[in-house]
Design a protein around this nucleic acid. Structure first.
Lengths: 248, 248
DNA sequence: ACAAAAGTGTTGAGAGTACACCCATGC
DNA sequence: GCATGGGTGTACTCTCAACACTTTTGT
């Protein structure tokens, strides 16, 4: 380390992102940059993720997280939203940057760095692309995933961890539901994602005391049993409530 | 959106990161990818960040977060560690991916996507590059930052938020201290970063009950007053303790 | 003996958790 | 009137937060 100091400062003219006047950056090797969007939804009382089937090598026939190249004139989030709209037709969606994966050999063809996003969509807003000649897209249960291309298994695992974690200290659960919902539906959404049962009274107390919901005044008619009050997410609510400190 | 369906599926052959056989990806416009490393340390009882002074246009003379291009054969984290070692000489360091910034116009020259990392280093391990002809590097108080190049002000703000947040629910505070330290020093580190005073008894109880520290048996001699017990971080400790849930 | 920093316990308030029954509606 | 899911309250425990004095050392 010490010995390498001088040559290092010479060879790393661009180490601080400075390059000489007249330098043509395009001549240098550059990685490709993609966005991959992990799209979660609750379908048939199960947490599902949308995957697409690859048509070309490598990993032809295997399933992958939908994604694509970042266009030269769009931001990363715009790219992610574009991919999401292409796959699901949904535009007004909760989306969040997850992590950037960039191991040199994660794509066997060339260097590809991918910025992973995760999105939560309500199943009732999904615009089905049935019959299109686009690549096959299918919802898979997170409990029963097919073999995945690239490092996508790792990305999904990371996304699930983050989703669960997020659900525990923020109020993103609504994003998986339609605009209006009952408390039982919301509780069920939490139970499905967290994979455990919750106490009804404690759940209701905690959600209601956080004041992120408001009553619509409507009641659910269709179902059996007593009709449930219908709530909606308060658009003026602060979604992320301060958690209690652990340290110190 | 609906009208565009067909042409969209045609024009986006690479939307799912599939490109045709024989496709030469290098011909397409690609962004450059850099890593920037926000390096925090406690110096003179203040939270400081290491910045470098740019020599070239754009933003010549302004200060910037140290960083550089990701080499084609190294992972993102390797690139970040390399940059960190180049700037500080430190190798065994806490480092964490922060966020990826990729607005199309964040660099006026060309499209540059940067993966930001943040690092916590103990000031006693920093290897000074004094006299080297590398670009000027200087520690700045987070309370008194100079004008910053690119979107680096935004990155620093984000990094500070994340550091504070992290400190509240994990045990990374040690990373800012030497291997061995007293509880008062640790408390002071927390106070500096969080920007508020903490109760000594509550702090000690909470830290000690988490069992992430062990006594070295040694006592601090130098100072005035009663000598303090010296602790070290338990290498077998779990740094991230489960926080109490907020929802539900 | 005094200055300076280290170390130590208790109490009250608020939040979390566990737990069982009545209510409104459709059939 | 009964089946079905909706809605409600209370007691115990635990953690947090506030607060002041004694101990050990060097000079």
């Amino acid at each position: 380390m010490l010995l390498g100091t001088f040559s290092l400062t010479m060879s790393d003219k661009n180490a601080t992102n400075d390059w000489p006047a007249g330098y043509d950056a395009s001549k240098y090797d550059r990685p490709s940059v993609t966005v991959d969007v992990v799209i979660f939804s609750l379908i048939e009382e199960d947490l599902k993720v949308l995957l697409v089937q690859r048509k070309n090598s490598p990993f032809a026939g295997m399933w992958a997280i939908p994604g694509g190249f970042v266009h030269i004139d769009e931001s990363l989030e715009e790219a992610a939203l574009r991919e999401l709209a292409e796959e699901t037709g949904v535009t007004d969606v909760y989306i969040e940057q997850l992590y950037t994966f960039g191991d040199p050999d994660r794509d066997p063809r060339t260097r590809v760095i991918t910025v992973a996003y995760f999105a939560l969509v309500s199943s009732d807003t999904i615009w089905h692309q049935a019959g299109s000649d686009a690549e096959a897209a299918e919802w898979f249960s997170m409990k029963d995933l097919p073999p995945l291309a690239f490092d996508h298994a790792k990305i999904l695992e990371y996304a699930l961890t983050r989703l669960r974690y997020k659900l525990e200290y923020t109020a993103v659960g609504f994003q998986l539901l339609p605009d209006e919902f009952t408390l039982s539906e919301l509780q069920q959404a939490y139970e499905i994602v967290l994979g455990e049962e919750l106490d009804k009274r404690n759940f209701r107390r905690k959600i209601l005391s956080s004041e992120i919901l408001e009553e619509t005044g409507k009641k659910k008619k269709e179902a059996e049993g007593r009709p449930a009050m219908i709530y909606r997410y308060r658009t003026d609510a602060v979604a992320e409530v301060k958690t209690r400190r652990l340290f110190p």
